[in-house]
Every structure is written in C-alpha cells, then in structure tokens.
Amino acid sequence: MTAVDEIVDRYQGGKSALIQILLDIQREYYWLPKEALIRLSERLEIPLNQIYHIATFYTAFSLTPRGRHQVMVCTGTACYIRGAPQLLHKVEEMLKVKPGKTSSDMRFTLITANCLGCCALGPVMVINGEYHGNPTTADLGHIFEACE
C-alpha cells in the first residue's frame, strides 16, 4: 500500500482531495482494490462507507480488476443514431462479454462511454486507446484477433 500512501502524501492529506486521490489510484492499478480503500479511510479519516459511495458513484472507478484489453464503445447520442447499438451488439457477440463486464479469461473488458466527443467518426470503438470509426464486422475480427 505504499503507492496509496505516496498518492495521499502528494495531496497533503486533504479530505477534499478524496476524488483526485481515487482517480490517481485507479490510474495506478486500473481498479480500486479494497485494501486501498481501507487504507485511504484510515489515512484521510473518512468513513469507509462514504468512500464506497464515491467509488461506486462515478464511472471512472472500477472496484473489480479489468481485463488486459479495454474495449470501449461510445454510446453518445451522435454515435447512437449512427448505429452504436448495432456495433455494441456485434462486439458483445464477438467477445462474449456484456457491457461493464470482463471476460473470464481476463482478456477483454467491455465498457460503454457516454460521449467521447469524436462524433464525426461515429459510431466509435476505442480499444486500448486506439480509435476506430464505424468498423465493419471484418475490421472487428482483425482488431480483436490482434489482442493477446
């Protein structure tokens, strides 16, 4: 938990930095391990139930480990009317994962985003930070195959 302590120290222990600290922990581990939350509760003297409320309130946080490859389908309004539901359906079928979930082999986590602000490309899928505008079924196959 030294990483948690280091992050807390960076914010000089201020309670008001809780969300900023959680964002940093999320960036460090890609999820929020329970031990980290308990440690944070001790360090900041914030009740654990409040930390859980925040951690389950904001979409940036994950309380379970995520897969090796993060697949994000944008379901913002512009993408939605340009066919994001069909794209999401295809991705779900191909990966056999439901949105918000991780495949049992920890290969993929599928998430949806409310708008990534690249509406001109829509419908958009982002995998490991790489953007794909309106990928066809064949494109998807190649993209996923390349993920170990």
């Binding site: 930095a17 969300i19 409040q50 925040i54 309130f57 904001y58 979409t59 940036a60 946080f61 409310n114």
Partner: peptide, 22 residues
Amino acid sequence: RGAGAFVSGESSALMTAIEGKV
C-alpha cells in the same frame, strides 16, 4: 478532475464534488 457523472454538471453537485464528496 471530475470522475464521470453527468449530474456533476449541476452546479451544487459539482461544488460538492470539489469538496471531495459524492
């Protein structure tokens, strides 16, 4: 930095978030 909640755009919710709360 906001942590992802549409309701945070509402002024009082945004301010609560700046205080580090839900």
